[in-house]
Design a protein around this nucleic acid. Structure first.
Lengths: 342, 342
DNA sequence: GTGAAAGCGCTAACAA
DNA sequence: TTGTTAGCGCTTTCAC
């Protein structure tokens, strides 16, 4: 199969130069397609390089040129599908532009975040794309990146005070769209599940919910707003509480899909028909949304696109621009759980 | 907030040496905690380094020392939760040992895989951890890694012919366990959904299914084996076909969870009670398994652990060992969909 | 069109 | 205990 293993010895432009009896700087120029080198020499050099299994040493060229063509990416946790999708998007675009991606997980720890940035700075990355840790409350470590003239791009979790190009989704608009969609389907008593902590994504979606109700002349009923932890269980608990207390409601918008799913299941198990009696919509467009019955309506966060844009923002700074921040529009994904008008 | 931005100029050990009026090699040794340097000088050097915002240049030290402390990781697609979990595991262990992770997605394309390896080799990574592309049929590019004495570790998708340390899950055992579990629950007419292509994961799980039946004295009924594409839809189609043709069966083992979920939904929609009339089990332990009703039984592939082991295998080669390959045991995760004995 | 030479910022062998 | 020196493999300026 793989035959005998003949180990390769390291070969440098020096070796090629010697083999061809020319100077090593000519070899370097030929390999870099320098215009001042004759086509004939270029051809000879390239053939020799191939035959000798030459592989340029990026360390040497980076050290000399000051460019590594490496971008550092910091995410809280790859295990979360939101972040792995964004990294996927970042990588796709970077790869098209010959950049490599150095990855670091902060695990929502400030200490890890600082360590990641330190590693990137030592590695002399050409740029850093990051999503800030929940724990982060001061930003000196991010400031240091800029002090070293390393382009910094933030996504999703953004620190306004850093005044750095960033990309995130418009959570307010998402909350507004979800609620407006329910209203358009004829629902009028719309409950909402939000977070108990003071999280931007939660408060923005809540604000969108309130404003959509107001815009359409519906009352904001505080007893229809459940506050709790992010979880399917809390979705169930909220629905159970509303039903038990006999609070009338005919639709529910949960701040994220897992919570919405819990709510949906509780409704079904208690014999409430969805979407006829109660409509349900979530947020994030998790992959299970198409798999449950009825299909769970949601709001798509364009995660891959977010990554692509983050990478494009970085490429923008490289070509000398100072790109503006991008606010992505969420996309409504209506499915059976909230469609009662055919 | 972030105050005035004072840009930092590059500072090297030379600068520290000049500031302290000592030789730059003393500075280097002090920073590397060399035993021959007096505690006093070490302290002076470190303080100066901190004050001057010194950050060692990894490029220079790597070029000189021949070690980059970077490991290249190639995965087919980060977007797939299986792979992002493995990368999470790899990163966790590497990080503990001060290695950085350079990421590359092959997107199931041989060309990309070759390009990724080329990039890694140019970057002089200290090792490569990879899962082979579906498209890959020859292995010269992997062979080149070894010819250059770069440690190579494979996970999940392994090429035996490369004779390289690897880690994967025992799919045969997983298929066996799933089937045996159904048998233990008293099911006797167990259907199986497998892939139409000739994929190792599918044929191994199928083999486990057959052997478990045989071991427990049950007949292998070919009409109970559906072959089709991986998808929830095919799960539905298989169940529909069995029911329509009135083929008697009282349990179903699908080669992966999405397919199992489709099957489960088709059963429920047709009024078949799960697990009382028919038991269902999938494979992969996808996160939605706990979210559906009834909870979907599955077989866990220990993805994070697989990544951790891959990283440990790499660390093993670094410390001079030639680690053996690891076959991970799958873990049975019984949930309501297949539990009818309480 | 090609060559010579300096230097990027470190590590490490050799001196003192 | 500290200093001197020689590279690692490239890029790039200046000659010719």
């Amino acid at each position: 199969m793989s035959g005998t293993l003949v180990f390769l010895k390291k070969v440098t432009i020096q070796d090629i130069a010697e083999a061809l009896n020319i100077s090593f700087s000519t070899v370097a120029r030929a390999l870099n397609d320098h215009p001042a080198i004759s086509p004939a020499t270029k051809k000879r050099v390239r053939e020799a390089a191939r035959k000798m299994h030459y592989r340029p040493n990026k360390l040497a060229s980076s050290l000399r040129s000051g460019k590594t063509h490496v971008v550092g990416v910091i995410v809280p946790n790859l295990h979360v599908s939101f972040f792995s999708s964004v990294v996927h998007g970042i990588d796709t675009v970077l790869n098209e532009h010959q950049y490599s991606l150095l990855l670091y997980q902060s695990n929502e720890s400030l200490g890890q975040e600082v360590k990641g940035i330190d590693t990137f700075l030592r590695s002399r990355v050409d740029g850093i794309i990051a999503s800030i840790t929940r724990e982060t409350s001061h930003y000196e470590h991010y400031d240091e990146i800029r002090k070293r003239h390393v382009p910094l791009i933030l996504f999703d979790r953004v620190a306004e005070s850093l005044r750095v190009p960033s990309v995130r989704i418009d959570d307010y608009k998402g909350g507004f769209m979800a609620t407006e969609h329910l209203i358009a389907q004829g629902y009028t008593n719309i409950a909402h599940i939000t977070a108990e902590q003071d999280l931007a994504i939660a408060t923005e979606r809540l604000r969108g919910y309130r404003d959509a109700l107001i815009r359409h002349g519906l009352p904001v009923q505080e007893e229809l707003i459940c506050k709790g932890p992010f979880s399917a269980d809390f979705g169930r608990a909220c629905v159970a509480s509303l039903l038990d207390r006999k609070v009338p409601f005919d639709a529910l918008f949960a701040l994220e899909d897992f919570t919405a799913l819990g709510a949906l299941q509780e409704l079904l198990e208690r014999g409430v028909r969805v979407p006829d009696e109660v409509g349900v919509i979530g947020f994030a467009n998790e992959s299970f949304g198409t798999l449950v019955t009825p299909g769970l309506s949601s709001v798509d966060q364009q995660t891959v696109r977010m990554g692509e844009i983050a990478a494009e923002l970085f490429l923008g700074t490289v070509s000398g621009n100072t790109p503006a921040s991008v606010m992505l529009d969420p996309i409504l994904v209506p499915r059976a759980s909230s469609l009662r008008i055919r």
